[in-house]
Design a protein around this nucleic acid. Structure first.
Lengths: 195, 195
DNA sequence: ATCATAGTATGATACTGATCATGTAAAAAA
DNA sequence: TTTTTTACATGATCAGTATCATACTATGAT
C-alpha cells in the first residue's frame, strides 16, 4: 500500500525507540530483530527496508539514546541557576526512579560494559555521545565557577555512572537506596550544591 | 580413563578460569560452552560432567572473579599503612594496565551492565561479591579514621568503577588517560592519601 | 476504474549454540 | 590379566536468530 510520505520515517522512529528501549533493558546481544519489530507493531521482514543490518540498528539506537539524554539534561537545568540545575540533575540521575527505569535512562549506565564489545560504528556512536555529555557537564561546572571544569566533569560523571550501576546491581532495596544516597550527598557537598 | 583424584578438580578450575576470562572480555551472552572448553583444551561434550548448565558456569565464574579481586586488594594493601595501601590500590585500579586488561580485572567494571540481566544464581553471586568488596573497602577507610566509612566506601567504589568503565569506553588514548587521572587525583585528594 | 508502487508480511535458508546420548580409552581394582 | 570405572570425545538434536527472496495490499497517479 502507499502511505503518506512521512509514514516510513515515523515507522523508523518507532522501531528506533523500541530498539533503544530493548537494548538498554536486555543488552545488545539478547535483542533480536524480530522482537524489536514486533514491539513496534510490525513483523521482521520489513526491517531491512529501514536498516542495513542489526549492527546499524544498534548504532542508530545508541544515537537516539544520547539524544534523549541530552534533552533530559537540558530539561532539568533549563531556567535555573547553574547550582540549582546541577543539583536537580544529580537528584534525578541518582533517583530510585532512574535506577528502576533502565530501559529509558542514561545509556552510559545501562550499557557501560557492553560498549567495549560493540561493533565499530556503534562504538564510535557511543564514544561521541560520552564526549559530548562530558563537554556539556563541564560547561555547567564552568558556569559554577570551577577552574578545572573538564577534569571535575569527568570525575563527577564517573561517580554518577558508577553509583547508578552499583545501585542497579544491588538487589536489596535499602542497600541500593544507600548507594544512591551516599553519592548524592558526596557530590553535592563536593560541588557546594543545594540539597 | 581414570586419572588421579585431583584431576577433575584441576580441570574444573581450568574451565572456570577460562570462563572468567572470556565472560569479562566478551560478556556472558557471547561466551559459548564450546569456546570455553576449547580454551581449556577440551571439547564441549565433557562440560556437563563439571557444570549442570551454562548458567551455573557463569555463576561459578563470577564467584571466581571476586575471589581473585579480593586477593588483589589484599596483595596491594598488605604490610602497608591504611593510607599507603589505599593509595596503592587506587593507583592500580585506575591504571592503564587495569583498563587494558578487561579479561582479568575487576568484575564490577567488566560486567556492571550485564548483572541486572543475569539469571538469579549468577546475580546473587555477584551481589554477594559487591557487598563484601564494599565491606572490605569500608574497613580500610575506617582504619584511616573515617567516621561514615561505609557511605564513603560506597561513594569511592562508585567513582572507581565509573571511571574505569568510562576509560574503557573512550577510544582515544589521551582522553582515556585523562579520565583515569581525573578520578585518581580526586579520590586521593578527598581521602588525604599520598600520591 | 485501473495500474504501478511502496511499505510490510510470509516463508525459507543458513548458522550458531545449549544440551544430551552414546562411545572410548586408560588406569585402578579384582 | 581381566574387569570396571571415570573423565572426556563424538555426533546429534532442537531452538533461536539474522538475513533474504518473494508475495501481498491499499493507495496515489493515470
Amino acid at each position: 500500500m502507499r502511505y503518506d510520505t512521512e509514514h516510513k520515517q515515523k515507522t523508523r522512529a518507532t522501531v528506533l525507540q523500541a530498539a533503544a528501549k530493548a537494548i538498554r533493558a536486555d543488552g545488545p546481544d539478547r535483542v533480536g530483530v524480530a522482537g524489536v519489530m514486533a514491539e513496534a507493531g510490525l513483523t521482521h521482514g520489513g526491517f531491512y527496508a529501514h536498516f542495513k543490518s542489526k549492527d546499524e540498528l544498534v548504532a542508530a539506537a545508541i544515537g537516539q539514546m544520547f539524544e534523549d539524554a541530552r534533552a533530559r539534561l537540558e530539561h532539568d537545568t533549563a531556567g535555573r541557576s547553574p547550582a540549582e540545575g546541577l543539583a536537580a540533575y544529580i537528584d534525578f540521575y541518582l533517583s530510585k526512579k532512574h535506577r528502576d527505569a533502565r530501559s529509558f535512562g542514561c545509556p552510559m549506565a545501562a550499557l557501560a560494559s557492553d560498549v567495549p564489545r560493540l561493533a565499530d560504528p556503534a562504538r564510535e556512536q557511543f564514544v561521541t555521545g560520552v564526549r559530548q555529555s562530558t563537554i556539556r557537564l563541564g560547561e555547567k561546572l564552568a558556569g559554577l565557577g570551577h577552574a578545572a571544569a573538564e577534569a571535575e566533569a569527568r570525575s563527577m560523571m564517573a561517580e554518577l555512572i558508577g553509583a547508578l550501576s552499583l545501585a542497579r546491581i544491588e538487589t536489596d532495596a535499602k542497600r541500593s537506596d544507600a548507594i544512591l544516597a551516599a553519592s548524592r550527598a558526596q557530590l553535592k557537598q563536593r560541588f557546594g550544591l543545594p540539597s
